Computed example of a mutant assay.
Amino acid sequence: MKKIAFITGATSGIGKATAEALAPHFKLILCGRRADRLAAISEAMPTETRTLCFDVRNQSEVFDAINSLSPEWRKIDLLINNAGNAHGLDLIHEGSLEDFDAMIDINVKGLIYVSKAIVPEMVERDCGHIINISSIAGKEVYPKGGVYCASKHAVTALSDGMRMELNPYNIKVGNVCPGAVDTEFSAVRFKGDLEKAAKVYEGYEPLVAQDIAEVIAFMALRPDHVNISDITILPKAQGSATIFNRK
């Protein structure tokens, strides 16, 4: 029988690509805020699928949605904490508190809420695998991205903490830190300004969502005794969070 993978932020970008990469190997629970996209993606999957529409920032929505699953579908083997966003690119004293709150609420608290709803069942079964999607910003800090970097540093720290705390329960925990990936990320960061978003990827070949999905699938499909605990993946043209070869 196929195991069950639970993916947050599955309506676009890395989440959607990860669902496609895992579909041959897992049954899927796809989560996101856009019900129409969830339905379309679910329908295209070559595996048994369930969808849950909720906002990871809303604690009650998270628990209500996950608790609505049947007992069979509550036995989640693989949790991909992918939901996350960047909002704005501003100096700390000029940025919007609304943007700062959104990044902390989605990237940090959302991951905590989803994990808190799912991990106790993994502990009870003495098995499971969690893969958290952090960022190169979870390893480095850059100007005008302090709060975003702080939120992704928190994801990396949570991954390390979860790995230690869940070790006695045979639960594997991995952390993925992508560099520049051409998805909706920059369009969201720049609040729909597609021209500004496009400039982020000018002059070099960025990663695409499928590149990250292949890494996630590789981690998920290792033998049970193998845990890839932390991985950073960059496009060839990227030397650090802020250094790019744009020739």
Results as ranks from 00 to 15, higher is better:
S96H: 14
S60Q: 12
R163N: 03
N132C: 13
I171T: 00
V114P: 02
V114I: 04
P143L: 02
D64Y: 06
G145S: 11
G88P: 01
K139V: 00
I136S: 03
K139P: 00
A102W: 15
N85A: 15
E94D: 15
V114W: 10
S134N: 03
N170Q: 03
G174K: 07
L97R: 14
D99G: 15
R163W: 05
G95W: 06
L89A: 11
L158F: 13
S135M: 03
V173W: 00
G95N: 01
Y142L: 06
P71N: 09
N67M: 14
A150P: 06
Y169W: 08
L52H: 03
N107Q: 05
Y142Q: 05
P178R: 02
S151I: 12
G145C: 09
V173N: 00
D55Q: 01
D64L: 04
S115N: 02
S70G: 07
I104W: 14
D101S: 14
N175F: 02
L166C: 09
V141N: 12
V56A: 04
V147H: 15
D99P: 14
S151K: 11
S159Y: 08
I112R: 02
R57E: 10
C149G: 04
C177W: 00
I92C: 04
A154M: 07
I76C: 05
H153T: 02
